[in-house]
């Protein structure tokens, strides 16, 4: 049996090595993208912060970088982002959570298997279509109840954004709830609990880490959402907490500047990178928070 002495040829070794190198390079692409994002946002913001002090940037309540007399306070944009996100969450969190409880605890398997993919389609609709829906369907509808509502308002943008993130919250929460083992529910049922009591007192605490992570993902989505607010909430920075007014968010401002043709080295142009940095810091903190929550409160069954 000579074939026992078979050895892989050198070319084969080289080929294996080359392939592994290519695969490794592809996997490292993720690191390069992150580095590129951080590098660009920092390097393009530096000229902006040379002109505008960070203190003014974070405390001024006017954002008018494109006016003759520019003011650079990020607060109005931050407020717009906060209000639209708040409106979105006050719709998406209750609806998403209750839907998740219903799907995981009450719904028959057939219904769940049919409804879940359809519900997830809500997250697949292009955001620009949602923007159209918010501006030309939801706003006129709301105006029937509140005639004083302006054509651009954060309320309708926030509500539509809420619908958009329902599937993120319901889907992930449901996964977390279904991961709670059956015997824990059976224990509760044996004590005479109704399904509702079991869901609230046993399943939800058991799935807390997953549910919180789902909320955090929803928040992070809402903060970074662009087209719905750019279309339906208006593009005028407005320092207000009233959702019935129009205002701009950080993302809407970036879109507004990108649509114009500002020269590359103007400060108005650089301001979108400063605004983008703030956006990245916020979403990045939420991502880390979600990661930590998941890690710290993870229940092992």
């Amino acid at each position: 049996m000579k074939s026992l002495g078979y050895k892989r040829s050198t070319t084969q070794y080289i080929r294996e090595w080359c392939i592994e190198l290519f695969l490794l390079a592809s996997a490292s692409a993720a690191i390069f993208v992150t580095l590129a994002i951080v590098f660009i946002l920092i390097s393009e913001s530096i000229p902006f912060f040379k002109e505008v002090s960070i203190l003014i940037f974070l405390s001024d309540t006017q954002w008018t970088p494109l006016f003759a007399n520019p003011r650079y306070g990020i607060l109005p944009l931050l407020m717009g982002t906060l209000v639209t996100t708040g409106v979105a969450l006050s719709l998406a969190i209750p609806v998403g959570t209750i839907s998740a409880i219903y799907l995981s605890e009450y719904a028959p398997a057939r219904l769940r298997e049919t409804v879940k993919p359809i519900l997830e389609l809500l997250a697949a609709v292009p955001t620009v279509v949602y923007g159209y829906f918010a501006l030309l369907f939801v706003t006129p509808l709301l105006q029937k109840f509140f005639p004083s509502l302006p054509g651009f308002n954060m309320l309708s943008a926030g509500l539509v954004m809420g619908v958009m993130i329902i599937p993120y919250i319901s889907s992930l929460s449901e996964d977390a709830m279904r991961a709670v083992p059956m015997h824990m529910r059976e224990g509760a049922y044996a004590m005479g609990s109704t399904k509702f009591q079991t869901a609230i007192n046993v399943v939800m605490p058991g799935a807390l880490s997953g549910i919180t992570a789902a909320y955090i993902l929803g928040i992070s989505r809402a903060i970074g959402e662009t087209m719905v607010v750019a279309i339906a909430a208006g593009m005028q920075p407005n320092f207000t907490i009233n959702p019935a007014e129009s205002a701009a968010t950080i993302t809407a401002f970036i879109v507004q500047v990108s649509l114009g043709d500002l020269p590359h080295d103007s400060i108005g142009y650089q301001s979108i990178f400063a605004a983008g940095s703030v956006l990245l810091v916020i979403t990045f903190s939420f991502n880390i928070l979600g990661f930590l929550v998941k890690k710290k409160f993870r229940q092992r069954y």
């Binding site: 996997a27 490292s28 993720a30 690191i31 993208v33 992150t34 590129a36 994002i37 660009i40 946002l41 390097s43 393009e44 993902l217 992070s220 903060i223 970074g224 959402e225 662009t226 993302t251 970036i254 879109v255 990108s258 979108i272 990178f273 983008g276 956006l279 990245l280 979403t283 990045f284 939420f286 991502n287 979600g290 990661f291």
Partner: peptide
């Protein structure tokens, strides 16, 4: 581990940030 953290993190970065990065790079 660093690669994995980066991939999870990138999935959560708002799409408009990718646009800013592409504009710069």
């Amino acid at each position: 581990a660093i690669i994995e953290i980066n991939i999870t993190n990138l999935a959560g970065v708002p799409s408009i940030i990718f646009g800013l990065m592409a504009l710069g790079i």
